[in-house]
Structure formats: structure tokens, C-alpha cells
């Protein structure tokens, strides 16, 4: 018998701090599998955010930097411009990327910065205990929207892929999910393409991954997968939002 599935080399052999059933672990592994398959670990530099995945620098075997909240795309820009043959990715949550770091995200895209962004959208701030995120759904109950997200004070969720699809510098934008096996396979394919784009010098790629937060959503992991499908997917439809190669999606 041959091993058909094992931990990728680029994923560190440590126990991650994530809650049981948190899909950050799946997404980390997909990124590491892609790094392995493309043979780029030695020249890859990752940038960790602030949020639940703040410790991502402990989970990848490549060189890592830890950025201030929201600033990962700026940090990645600095690295990429300093080390020309490097492969640079950021791994960011919704608060980091779409609230405090919106400017850095949009402008990295506008510059066509040749980096890869893995954007994990679970519609909540996890690390601080479940507050409203820029991507929280209308009516969603969180610690800071105890009566549900009220549009009169809290406005509407930001659809990052749709927004960035209007930015000329962005090369590739796709929204995927990790709620079941076929979607996890598709997510990996998208992440691989986003890294391949960088290798090929095609510019800014961002993969938005719909993810779950069982702890702060207050559900089991299985229920959370269902909630993602029933509530998040209608607001955040999966698909390719921009692919410069294919023309506008």
C-alpha cells in the first residue's frame, strides 16, 4: 500500500491552536499542499495577520512575517519588492482584510502587486470572541450585534471579490468554500492557480474562502457547515469573479 494522503511538508508538524472543527486548519493545509506541489517552499515567504490566524507563522515551514492588523498586503509588498524571486502570500481573516485593512487590500490590488492573498471569510471576529465582522450577514447575531446586524447602524456586508473585480490591477479573484469534499477540492485548485499566477508574474490574486466558526457561531462543526451553505452562500456566491486570462467573469 502506498500513502495517498499525509501531512504536507510545508505544514509544520505541530498541533494548531484552532478550536475543534475550525476550518482554518483545512485552509492552512491546502496552502501547504500547493506550496509542496509547486516546489516553492524554499522561496516562499508568508505573512500572518492579526486575528485567529495570527499564529500562522508557527504553522508553515517557509519563512514567515507577522504583520500588524490589516497591514499584511503592505508588508507583503515590501517583501516582494525586496526579494525579487520570492513567492509571497498573505493569510488574512475578514476583519483584518475587509475592515481595518481595506485600504491596503484595495491598493495592493490596484498596483497589481504580484502576490497571493488567502482571504478567510467566516463572517465574524473569532479571536476576540465573536464580534461583528465587515462580512457579518444582515441580521446576524454577534457579541456586538446582540439584536442582529441592523443595517441602520451597522450597514451591509462587504463582498470583497465583487468589489475587487472592479479594480483593474487585480488578475484573479475567486470565491470558494470548504464546507464539503468537492468544494475543498475546488478551493485547492483555486489556491494553486493563485500561486501559479504569481510564479508566472501575472499579478494580484485573491482567493476568498468561506469558512466556519463553530465556537462563535454557537453551533457544532456539522451544523456550521450547513449554516455556511444555507446563509453565507446566497450572500457570497461561489465562483470566479475575475480572471484576466479568461476576460471578465
Amino acid at each position: 500500500m502506498a500513502k495517498v494522503f499525509e501531512k504536507p511538508h510545508a505544514l509544520s508538524d505541530v498541533s494548531m491552536h484552532y478550536c475543534p472543527g475550525c476550518t482554518h486548519g483545512i485552509i492552512h493545509r491546502l496552502v501547504a499542499e500547493v506550496i509542496d506541489e509547486l516546489g516553492i517552499e524554499g522561496r516562499t515567504i508568508g505573512v500572518a495577520p492579526v486575528g485567529c490566524s495570527v499564529f500562522a507563522y508557527n504553522y508553515f515551514e517557509c519563512d514567515m512575517q507577522e504583520a500588524a492588523h490589516g497591514r499584511a498586503p503592505a508588508v507583503a509588498t515590501g517583501i516582494k519588492r525586496a526579494v525579487k524571486d520570492s513567492i509571497v502570500f498573505t493569510y488574512q481573516g475578514d476583519g483584518d482584510l475587509a475592515a481595518i485593512g481595506t485600504a491596503e487590500t484595495v491598493h495592493a490590488a490596484a498596483r497589481g502587486e504580484n502576490i497571493t492573498i488567502i482571504f478567510v471569510n467566516n463572517a465574524i471576529y473569532g479571536m476576540t470572541g465573536g464580534q461583528m465582522a465587515p462580512t457579518s450577514l444582515v441580521g446576524q447575531v454577534t457579541q456586538t450585534t446582540p439584536y442582529g446586524r441592523d443595517t441602520s447602524t451597522q450597514g451591509y456586508p462587504i463582498r470583497v471579490c465583487e468589489m475587487l473585480s472592479q479594480v483593474e490591477g487585480a488578475a484573479y479573484l475567486e470565491r470558494v468554500a470548504v464546507n464539503n469534499i468537492p468544494n475543498i477540492r475546488k478551493a485547492k485548485k483555486a489556491i494553486k492557480k493563485a500561486f501559479q499566477n504569481q510564479i508566472d508574474g501575472k499579478g494580484f490574486s485573491l482567493i476568498e474562502v468561506l469558512s466556519i466558526c463553530p465556537t462563535n457561531w454557537g453551533m457544532s462543526p456539522q451544523e456550521s457547515m450547513k449554516w455556511l451553505e444555507e446563509n453565507m452562500m446566497p450572500v457570497y456566491p461561489l465562483g470566479v469573479y475575475k480572471d484576466k486570462e479568461q476576460g471578465e467573469a
Binding site: Q65, A67, A68, V75, T77, V83, H107
Partner: peptide, 19 residues
């Protein structure tokens, strides 16, 4: 950069990469 905030964080990235 798009702001002073972004500029200093670009400095962080580049300095961290040894430049």
C-alpha cells in the same frame, strides 16, 4: 504608498526581508 500606514508596513516587510 496609499498612506503613511501602508508605507511604514512596506518598510517592515522589506526590512524583515533584509533590505
Amino acid at each position: 504608498a496609499e498612506s503613511e500606514v501602508a508605507a511604514i508596513n512596506m518598510v517592515y516587510g522589506a526590512a524583515g526581508a533584509g533590505a
